[in-house]
């Protein structure tokens, strides 16, 4: 006989572990399925200064581990398992993972979001070998080198600024003729002597076998130019991790799971918390709030089913 949990939480970021904490404290039998380690996106943020209660800031990785321990203190379980597929309409709901099958009367989707890739051939193979998605994480290794930043929003501008303090030269490639980033970024970027811009342009090819050596850039008139570089930082927005629920729960045009403040999805007993849900403010504090809401509604659902 397979064990059936009251709640299976997919993803061990702040939303997932808060759901687990509230569920465990409500006496529910809950397991968190996490593919690597607690914390999700915030685990790569060295200092979080906008999570209240930590007046000197807190390291994102440590905050993730603390949230995990906090939930486990009340009996929540963690499995380091990668989810391969889910049947969310089954009774009980069925989750297939690298570590075997899990069954839950309710499921909380807390899979978060990740950087949006360019979608170019070879991009995946070169990731970590010249292609990066986080300047704060990987920028330091490009001291004195030449890097290309793709994107024009706030995070691209912040990445370009960070890199301009480390690299010899930063080339920003943006598909429009002006930055979309807020004004505070414009002046320091324009003033930085080692930052160049390629407007109305996009990266069309990545060169290099073992390591990135250059990128091909095409401008609005179709002129192509090869730019030799040591690193490429892609900063063109985020992509929700919803491939596993596509075709089951309702998604919006950008791939986010449609769910309001109640976190209820289009499938009864399935809740979406944190960055993966349609919402306007994606922060650690809003993710943890979602976790608490999901358990409130899951308890009602469990009482009625």
């Amino acid at each position: 006989m397979n064990r059936v949990y009251d709640m299976v939480v997919v993803g061990g970021g702040p939303g997932g572990y808060t759901a687990a904490l509230y569920a465990a404290r409500a006496g529910l039998d809950v397991v968190v399925l996490e593919k690597l380690s607690a914390g999700g996106q915030m685990a790569l943020t060295e200092m979080i200064d906008n999570y209240p209660g930590f007046d000197e800031g807190i390291d994102g990785f440590e905050l993730g581990e603390r949230m995990q321990r906090g939930a486990e203190r009340f009996g929540a379980q963690t499995e380091l398992a990668e989810v391969l597929s889910m049947d969310l309409k089954a009774e009980p709901k069925h989750v297939v993972t690298s570590e075997g099958d899990f069954y839950g009367r309710t499921v909380v989707i807390a899979t978060g979001a990740g950087p949006r890739p360019l979608g170019l051939p070879g991009e995946q193979a070169l990731t970590g070998r010249g292609v990066h998605y986080c300047a704060a994480c990987d920028g330091m290794r490009y001291r004195g080198k030449t890097v290309v930043v793709v994107g024009g929003g706030n995070s691209a501008a912040a990445d370009a600024l960070t890199l301009s303090r480390v690299a010899k030269k930063v080339i920003v490639v943006h598909r429009r003729d002006t930055l979309r980033a807020t004004k505070v970024y414009h002046e320091p970027l324009m003033r930085a002597e080692n930052v160049e811009f390629r407007w109305n342009s996009r990266v069309t090819d990545l060169m290099g076998q073992e390591k990135l050596t250059a990128v091909m850039v095409e401008n609005g008139s179709g002129v192509r130019q090869e730019l030799a570089c040591d690193g490429l930082f892609v900063s063109i927005g985020r992509k929700p991790s919803t491939d596993l629920v596509r075709g089951q729960t309702e998604l919006d045009e950008n791939g986010y799971i449609v769910a309001g403040e109640s976190t209820e999805t289009s499938i009864p007993g399935v809740y979406a918390v944190g960055d993966v849900r349609t919402k306007t403010v994606r922060q650690v504090v809003t993710a943890v709030a979602d976790g608490a809401c999901a358990v409130h509604h899951a308890e009602q659902y469990l009482a009625e089913h």
């Binding site: 690597l36 380690s37 607690a38 685990a43 790569l44 990785f61 380091l80 330091m140």
Partner: peptide, 15 residues
């Protein structure tokens, strides 16, 4: 020690 993603791998690597 300064590599963020190295830390993220840690718990899984111990397993």
């Amino acid at each position: 020690p300064w590599c963020g993603y190295c830390r993220r791998i840690g718990p899984a690597y111990d397993k």
